[in-house]
């Protein structure tokens, strides 16, 4: 079954109270180490962003299908898969960020969770706000803001591995398609 290459949904933009992009959000802020012993996906969503000031209520606000927009170096820190899985648990459709921690990016790619890089999307003013409707083409790296009627430049297209694993579902399913 093919998974969608175009995603059109409502966005949440991770800004602080002053309206600035929050950079360097680490995995403890995304999914605190107090909940690491949990292994069931369904139980992880309630803790998403639970240690990020101003965003503790994200699990209640977010709806399945929503898109999350983040700043630079999102997911810095530890290797915990839960920091990706908590968003999968909530049904978040996609995370778009200016850049990501290297391990975080791997974890997202391997679990087939779409994650798109788009420098400037949040730090440059006027491009996007919470509640906007965004249309994103993952294979072309195109980002279009329906609310403002403007295209947002700078989106990076999925790499081949990223698209293949995404389409297969996750790394394990992908393995069945390519490795002996």
């Amino acid at each position: 079954m093919k998974r969608p290459v175009v995603i059109k949904e409502r966005v949440w933009v991770l800004r602080d109270e002053q309206g600035m992009a929050i950079d360097d959000i680490d995995t403890d802020q995304i999914y605190h180490n107090a909940h690491l012993a949990i292994t069931e996906l369904e139980k992880m969503g309630q803790f998403a962003l639970g240690n990020l000031p101003g965003w503790e209520d994200f699990p209640q606000k977010a709806k399945p299908g929503d898109i999350l927009i983040v700043g630079r170096n999102f997911g810095a820190g530890s290797s915990r898969q839960q920091a990706v899985d908590c968003f999968r648990s909530l049904g978040i459709a996609l995370i778009i960020g200016e850049s990501f921690g290297a391990i975080y990016k791997r974890n997202a790619v391997n679990s087939g969770f779409p994650l798109l890089i788009c420098p400037g999307i949040i730090s440059q003013p006027g491009k996007i706000d919470s509640g906007n409707i965004l249309e994103v083409n993952l294979s072309a790296g195109e980002v279009y803001n329906h609310t403002t009627g403007k295209k947002i430049e700078g989106g990076e297209r999925f790499s081949q591995v990223q698209m293949d694993v995404y389409q297969a579902g996750n790394l394990f399913e992908y393995e069945k398609t390519i490795l002996t």
């Binding site: 791997r106 974890n107 996750n170 394990f172 393995e175």
Partner: peptide
Amino acid sequence: QGMGDVDIAFAFRTGKTWFE
């Protein structure tokens, strides 16, 4: 290289991983 648990389970089974 530090990795998440999906990556490592895959590496346990296959002895392989992908690198950019």
